[in-house]
């Protein structure tokens, strides 16, 4: 279980996260939602242990993240930042291999190769293993970056807007891969902008507004027009059936 307890964080004199508490379960897809500047990315980085909160704490299975050694934490929590930058033109296999860095020295070359092979297979990238990363499409690149997290063997996968730059087909394909990870028992936490994606595919949503948690629960229950109006200041209505909802904006 990944938990936040009374998490509070200020940057440059401004409160970015304000006394946030929740429990996240493994085996679920959690979507962090909110308008721009609500503190979504900061919250995700705090859950990954990259930012230390002023008060309160983030904890993994009851253990505060700050008390876990960085390489141990790295093996348990995988984190994909927003930009998805890959500075050098590595092969897909070498990129996934970066996920073995935290366990360096404690695993054999054969174990590393096996873990990398499994990660590539899970992301349907086996045929791409020797392709240079810079030649991949956006969707393939997203999967390659995820393969890096899987190669670590992390039980939690935290990704900051992994679907943002993708077209519809690639969004759905990557979402299906996230679902497969959750089904294997991993915890998946995604920062998303697309409310309909969250509504249809997440098991739980956290809605942030100005650094405060304004909703937390299954999307069908908490992602109501009232919450959306409060968070985004837009009047909306859900259409369609559960699992294939669409959001429409109402004028006035």
């Amino acid at each position: 279980m990944l938990t936040a307890h009374d998490l509070t964080l200020a940057r440059g004199g401004r409160t970015v996260l304000d006394r946030i508490s929740f429990d996240l379960n493994a085996g679920e897809i959690t979507a962090i939602l909110g308008p721009n500047g609500a503190g979504k990315s900061t919250l995700l980085a705090a859950l990954a242990g990259l930012i230390v909160p002023e008060t309160g704490r983030a904890a993994l299975a009851g253990e505060p993240l700050g008390a876990i050694a960085p390489t141990t934490r790295a093996r348990r929590i995988g984190y994909l930042p927003q930009a998805g930058e890959v500075a050098w033109n590595l092969s897909v296999r070498a990129l996934a291999g970066l996920g073995r860095l935290p366990g360096r020295g404690s695993s054999s070359a054969a174990e590393d190769a096996a873990a990398i092979g499994q990660a590539l297979a899970a992301m349907d990238l086996t045929a791409f293993a020797d392709r240079p990363v810079h030649s991949l499409s956006g969707g393939e690149r997203g999967r390659a970056l995820l393969a890096r997290v899987l190669a670590t063997g992390a039980e939690w996968v935290l990704a900051d807007e992994p679907l943002a730059a993708l077209d519809l087909a690639h969004q759905l394909s990557l979402t299906a891969h996230f679902r497969a990870l959750a089904r294997q028992g991993r915890g998946v936490v995604l920062v998303l902008h697309d409310l309909a994606l969250a509504m249809n595919h997440a098991d739980r949503v956290l809605v942030l507004g100005k650094g405060c948690l304004i909703a937390n629960g299954p999307p069908a229950e908490v992602l109501t027009p009232a919450v959306i109006a409060r968070g985004w200041g837009v009047n909306t209505e859900w259409l369609g059936n559960p699992g294939e909802r669409a959001l429409v904006v109402r004028g006035g």
Partner: peptide
Amino acid sequence: TLGEAAARSLG
């Protein structure tokens, strides 16, 4: 290679 935040997440 993956940027500073990802590097830190790798320990």
